[in-house]
Design a protein around this nucleic acid. Structure first.
Lengths: 197, 197, 197, 197
DNA sequence: GATGAATGAGTGTTCATTCAT
DNA sequence: CATGAATGAACACTCATTCAT
């Protein structure tokens, strides 16, 4: 066991955070294709070489950033999640929280979308990501068993519950959509009509 | 020695087509970020310099390719479009044609998605693109007026009719979805339930 | 068949030569380890990017340069080669020509030595290189058969005929050696005494 | 917490040795060009910064390692050296010991060769190195005076006694040479024939 | 003494684009 | 029209070295 009577220079959490945020900002500003390690480092206020202290390489930087976002997103989505409540309420809560997450973290969300559309996406273990969202899948199955939700494949259900939110909450796609609580509720109404038995 | 006959095409349509297809192929194979003018030219079987005869620069190449795809897509979508038929049938037909277009032209569709997610998308006149799909908007409005379709904003309606298809038809997102006619009909059922009054 | 009624820009032989010479000069001046593509390009008076028009990459540059030197060296060595003359005369002529080649092309020779001592050497087909010198091997065998030369392995014979020349002709190793015709003849005497039956 | 006892070594000899060995290993494994301070430090199991406690800089590391090897080599060469025995026996013994040293310490030897071929070699005092081998030079002179050895310059003699060994003992150059005692004796025979009066 | 963090300067290589032909 | 040659600028990444601890 090594004990230091005088500590060495330690890794700087601020720098890690700065790099994380810079990655998202740069990618959102100029796009995945044009984002370079040097631009991200400059945005973070560190030397490009420093970036390699915190990340193995560009791929690691982009992939780690994506995974961190996805983890954070699933956490936000499932705040106050209660699998024993009424199904419609569960989904409404998740739906609204997803909407709010996207609206409030639009840059993170957009980064994740760009990442998922890039060839880097093949480098992440999709199953691991999906595990974050497993509680939702279980509730869906429960709804199907109780004949509350249509007995169609998960892919179809997800396509109607979550995909439209992503569009509506993203000002890039829906500039006209006014995200007042009423409008969000209205939109959820359509989602529920789609999947309910 | 090349001899020019009268009426001979000076700009070679074959080359233009080759470049169009090469652009999509390369972008889909290696991603937006890694796609370079030289790789696209090589894939098309022409010199990088020749590419500049047909396109002003890289941006022009990418943007033009996107617009061409979108035009073609709207054309396919609206084949046999009859605004006077029953509303549900109209949408069903468009829905299925959209689905088939994506399934059959997945590389074009994927290119368009990557493009739309890139900052290049800011360079295209979105209104012009939307005009291609205007007949659909008119039918939507008609349905609302007749109380066949929910009286909510176009953005919400579109988010539930078209966005889910894009997810379902894209094998990258839905590997498990079996696109048999029955499944497609089932999925359309959810879309209709969502928007119908 | 493509016929150009107006030619395109053609590859510049001067540039190729300049790159060849620059490679040798730089490597000899600062060593294999410190030699970089940019330094070689600068020495040749071209852009680093231009270098990649003529060579696939750094490895190709270094390996091609080595092979070119070796080919040239074997050509010089075998000038006036007559396998039917007296054995001692054959070897004396080759020995002297090797000596002169090394003395006159010391930079090429030194490059080749550095290359052979580098890990890049594993990338060249040694057999192909040795084929250049095959006439000598045949004469050696002939000498052994006729009991003019000691019946020992080729490796030993080569080690005593050619390796000492490389040392003597190389001013880096033998600063004191005066390469007058008499001294060269004397040195050859030792080589012949070593291998003669 | 580290506690210093009285008389405790401050500079760690183990670390010095580890660095010496790591330098040779890394250079032999990946070549002079690719060898970096960090890789050597990692191989030695210390921090790059620690390396600078033992060596002034990279140059010092490489040069010191070379000198250490050369010293060790001369020591091995002259084991049991008796200037009063028969000349042929003296040289035979040295020759065989040189051969064995190279065969047994091929990595050290190869490092030394690479170093000698690099521009770093200009940084070492060659005369100091040669002094290690002075006993041999004296014996040579003695042989010349007694007309046992040809009266030619030292450079020529050395070129025929020692250079061929280096070639034969180096498997990189002579893969086919079987270093059995008989073969080594045979090879020495050629060396002796070359230099003997 | 020993260390991981930090970095400016450099690496090999590819880029989008222009040029002469 | 069509081309291969040519390049400055950028790329991802590693370097030898220093610094604070």
């Amino acid at each position: 066991m090594i004990v230091y009577f005088r500590g060495m220079r330690t890794r700087d959490d601020d720098k890690q955070t700065a790099l994380f945020e810079a990655t998202i900002k740069v990618v959102n500003d100029i796009g995945f294709a044009a984002s370079s390690v040097s631009k991200i480092a400059k945005e973070a206020g560190v030397s490009p070489a420093t970036l390699y202290v915190y990340y193995k390489n560009k791929e690691d930087l982009l992939v780690s950033t994506y995974i961190d976002i996805k983890q954070d997103m699933s956490r936000e989505l499932l705040v106050g999640f209660d699998p024993d409540g009424p199904l419609r309420d569960i989904f409404k809560q998740v739906w609204i929280q997803l909407f709010e997450y996207i609206a409030e973290n639009s840059s993170c969300f957009h980064y994740a979308e760009q990442f998922a559309n890039s060839p880097y996406s093949q480098l992440v273990n999709t199953q691991e990501i999906e595990r974050y969202f497993e509680p939702l899948t279980q509730v869906l199955q429960h709804g199907i068993d109780q004949k509350i939700i249509k007995n169609v494949s998960f892919d179809i259900l997800k396509a109607f519950i979550f995909y439209p939110v992503m569009m509506l909450a993203n000002p890039k796609h829906c500039q006209n959509f006014d995200s007042s609580p009423e409008n969000i509720e209205t939109a959820f109404g359509l989602a529920w009509d789609a999947i309910k038995f």
